[in-house]
């Protein structure tokens, strides 16, 4: 899975992302980083800190506040032969760029029969759990998994964040790379009333300094188990893992890491073994990615299922501010869902 692994050190997810960008900019002169506040300032989350100083303004630059422009310009740069890594400051603000992403980046290879490609990686912080209210908390991955021609990737640990981001930048297809900002600085188990943790001591926070890849399209089995399969990604991986340990249930947890293309073999193998499947995501429920997962499991594992597929998701409301912890699919809701599916 990894190649040329070098010395490892403990990194937060932000540091790991910064390191991935640094490694790729060093290796490939075609890689350019662009977005609002990413240049001199180093990004509102510090993901691009130090890059402009090291690689110059022709490769790392601040942009005007126009998401249409950021993505449209990145497509043009890709057509020229560069490998752009544009940042959208929050996933909640990716919508102005939807036309450029859906109609252009995703379709360019197809409509030109490969004459032109769009090898860009769109980085964007996403997800809730930070009192971000309606426009700093959304999880719009389902919008992109519905678009043919883009890949959607979501890491859950610093190690994966770096390896997946490197793989995404090297990939010749457009990749939407959603970074769960709740776990930028430490894993989050959903217990918002407890002190927040750093990545220190987490096995997923030991990150090689140099180049390595975590291949796209392959899930990670976080924990093997026999009683139940839980499919999740991003922040929810940590919430799920914590509850499974707390409840002592023998669940197999699969962190999907890439939603499109999905690691269908890992999903199928696990559900056929356990006979039960629970899907957890922060995004709203109706037509969310969980619906696709549920349909795939039903189609492929129907005769192995001992209970209906369970979905624990955000509610079908805009993301609320004061009622964040009622909305967030946290420990209370996950516990109930596990109890329910195990009773069936």
């Amino acid at each position: 899975m990894t190649e040329a692994a070098t010395e490892t050190r403990q990194m937060s997810m932000i540091q790991a992302i910064n390191s991935a960008l640094d490694v790729m900019m060093e290796r490939d002169p075609e890689v350019v980083v662009m977005g609002e506040d990413v240049g001199f300032f180093g990004g509102v989350f510090r993901a691009t800190a130090g890059l402009q100083k090291k690689y110059g303004k022709n490769r790392v630059f601040d942009t005007p506040i126009t998401e249409i422009g950021i993505i449209g310009v990145a497509i043009g740069m890709g057509a020229y032969g560069l490998r752009p890594v544009p940042e959208i400051q929050f996933a909640d603000y990716i919508y102005p760029a939807l036309d450029q992403l859906v109609s252009e980046a995703a379709r360019l290879r197809y409509r030109s029969a490969g004459e032109f490609i769009s090898p860009m990686t769109v980085r964007s912080p996403f997800g809730g759990g930070i009192f971000g209210g309606q426009t700093h908390s959304q999880s719009p991955e389902g919008i992109f998994t519905h678009v043919s021609g883009v890949k959607t990737v979501i890491p859950s640990t610093p190690y994966d964040a770096k390896g997946l981001l490197i793989a995404a930048i090297e990939d010749n297809d457009p990749v939407i790379f959603f970074e769960p900002k709740r776990i930028y600085n430490g894993p989050f188990d959903g217990h918002y009333d407890r002190p927040s943790k750093s990545w220190a001591g987490h096995p997923g926070a030991m990150v090689p300094e140099g180049y390595y890849r975590v291949p796209l399209g392959r899930a990670r089995t976080v924990r093997a188990g026999e009683a139940l399969t839980i499919l999740c990604y991003g922040t929810m991986e940590h919430v799920v893992e914590s509850m499974v340990i707390e409840m002592g249930v023998d669940a197999e947890i699969i962190d999907l890491r890439t939603l499109v293309p999905l690691d269908i073999e890992a999903v199928e193998r696990s559900v056929k073994k356990t006979g039960r499947c629970m899907i957890v995501h922060e995004a709203t429920r109706t037509s969310g990615y969980g619906a696709e997962l549920s349909a795939l499991v039903q189609e492929r594992c129907f005769y192995h299922l001992e209970a209906p597929v369970e979905r624990v998701t955000g509610f079908d409301t805009p993301y609320p501010h004061s009622l964040e912890w009622a909305y967030f699919p946290g420990p209370v809701r996950i516990r109930e869902a596990i109890n329910k599916i195990m009773r069936e």
Binding site: G72, V73, G76, M77, A79, Y80
Partner: peptide
């Protein structure tokens, strides 16, 4: 914007 991006590149 794509043309502008190509020119910038």
């Amino acid at each position: 914007p794509q043309a502008v991006g190509w020119a910038m590149a």
